[in-house]
């Protein structure tokens, strides 16, 4: 897979994760994955192999914060919350995505 394609896929995943945390509040990885599946009506499925490295990368760069707690069924779980830096990144990523979709739509319509 080329670097540029990887970058686009990573950017799209970041966008989905940040958006989900921004609206869903504090969530664990499993909850985020299920939420994305449900909201997209199962059109999108976040692979676990991509989800957790992405969450840890975003935690490292400061877009999200993590803490350990107890889930509804009293299991030990790691919970993530978006930070103000993550919200700023989300705004940028949403703009980038909107521009990309608009560009592709125009090409599909008029090219």
């Amino acid at each position: 897979m080329g670097q540029r394609k990887r970058d686009h896929l990573q950017g799209a995943l970041d966008l989905l994760l940040l958006r989900t945390l921004n609206t869903g509040g504090t969530m664990h990885g499993y909850g985020i994955a299920v939420r994305i599946e449900e909201v997209s009506r199962e059109a999108l499925r976040v692979e676990e192999g991509s989800l957790y490295p992405a969450l840890h990368r975003m935690e490292r760069v400061g877009w999200i914060e993590a803490s350990w707690g107890r889930s509804d069924n009293q299991r030990r779980a790691k919970f993530y919350t978006i930070t103000s830096g993550g919200q700023a990144r989300l705004a940028e990523a949403q703009e980038d995505w909107t521009r990309l979709v608009a560009g592709v739509t125009r090409v599909l319509k008029f090219a």
Binding site: E47, E48, Y52, P53, A54, R57, E59, R60
Partner: peptide
């Protein structure tokens, strides 16, 4: 089966954690 190779995921997580 859905999760895939756990060790691979853990390696990717460790790598993602490095500055």
């Amino acid at each position: 089966t859905r999760f895939g190779d756990i060790e691979e995921v853990k390696t990717a997580m460790r790598k993602a954690n490095r500055p």
